[in-house]
Computed example of a mutant assay.
Amino acid sequence: MHQISAPLSELGIDQNSQITLGFLVFEGFPMACLTSVIEPLRAANEIAGRDVFRWQVISETGESTSSSAQIPFQADLALCDVQRLDMLFLLSEPDGKFANPHASNGRLRFLARHGTCVSAVSGGIFPLARSGLLDRQICSVHWCYRTAFEAEFPELETTDDVIVLGKNCCTASGAAAAFDLSLHLVELAFGEAAMTEVACWFQHPSIRSPGVRQKTPAFQTDDIADHMPDMVSKAIQLFSDNLEFPLTTREVARRVGVSARHLERSFRQATGQSPGGYYRLVRLRAARQLVIYTQDPLTSIAHAVGYTNPTSMSRNYVEHFGSSPRQDRQDHNRFRVRRDTHLN
């Protein structure tokens, strides 16, 4: 049987207990994250013939909340009315915020003090971090949000692991990671055989445990980064770890342990691009996260991704994305206003 870490084991889940989960949904939350946790638990209940797992959909006010696909979900209750849960998952876009942060963040902290494992999936890590409950904990952050998250919360330690089981909370990088986390809950309640059966119900090919790293795309190729040759994969990791002060190709090659010429040749064979061109793309994608998910001025964003001024960054940004950073930010904000107006 898989080794279950202490935080989940301390929930006291077994086949004779009942565990209640809450899903705190913010406007525009990713629906897949909700169903990825619930469906394995529903299947486990069905296999067992009884409801070991129960759940509630919660919103800040108790009103209906729409997902990113604009499908409305009626909440069972308001956050202020939640009394006792074994686990509470925050599901949100990165810019999800409470309308009344003082009261709602206080409620989250109250629940955590009284034994609720307050957790987050995907963009839900942003409002969870804003509550202060992730202080001194390592967080699993989806690769496409990591730059924006680290810019807003530089004091928090992040990881590329798909799941992190912390002292008082769990974080899952995305919907598939949430499915894996849910399977671990099934294992606690019913054992490994039941967990495997549930996974097979959904044709879930492998069950990932904490410590497994996220898959990330190798940009402008059909492959993923960890399927690349070892030196290329290591170089890509160095690119991601050195955005503000970019390394030269020669320095990257030295750290990887090959000549610059060998790295250049291998990189082109694996990706169809030069190391320098790929590195610029990594920095531009990081810049786009900051443009869309933060309100940082363009000068600060340019410096954060290794440009000396916003003009040169904007020129490369337009060449790659087809719109300027200012236009991207305006379009994102217009979409949110249009969607919220539609929902109201």
Results as ranks from 00 to 15, higher is better:
M1E: 10
Q3C: 04
S5N: 10
P7K: 05
L8Y: 08
E10I: 07
D14H: 15
Q18R: 13
V25C: 15
F26Y: 14
C33R: 04
V37P: 09
R42A: 10
A44F: 03
E46F: 06
I47F: 11
F53L: 11
Q70C: 08
F73Q: 14
L77H: 09
Q83L: 12
Q83T: 15
E93M: 05
F98V: 06
L111N: 00
L111Y: 12
G115L: 12
T116D: 00
A120Q: 01
S122N: 13
P127V: 07
C144R: 14
C144V: 12
F149S: 01
A151L: 12
A151E: 13
L156A: 08
A178L: 08
L181W: 15
E187K: 03
A189T: 05
G191Y: 01
A199S: 05
Q203M: 14
Q203Y: 14
S206N: 06
R213A: 05
T216A: 11
T221Y: 15
D223G: 14
M231D: 15
K234E: 15
K234L: 10
S240A: 15
E244F: 13
G257T: 09
E264F: 09
R268Y: 00
R288V: 05
R288A: 05
Q289E: 14
Q289H: 08
L298N: 09
P310N: 07
E319Y: 06
G322T: 04
S323Y: 08
D331M: 10
R338S: 11
R339Y: 01
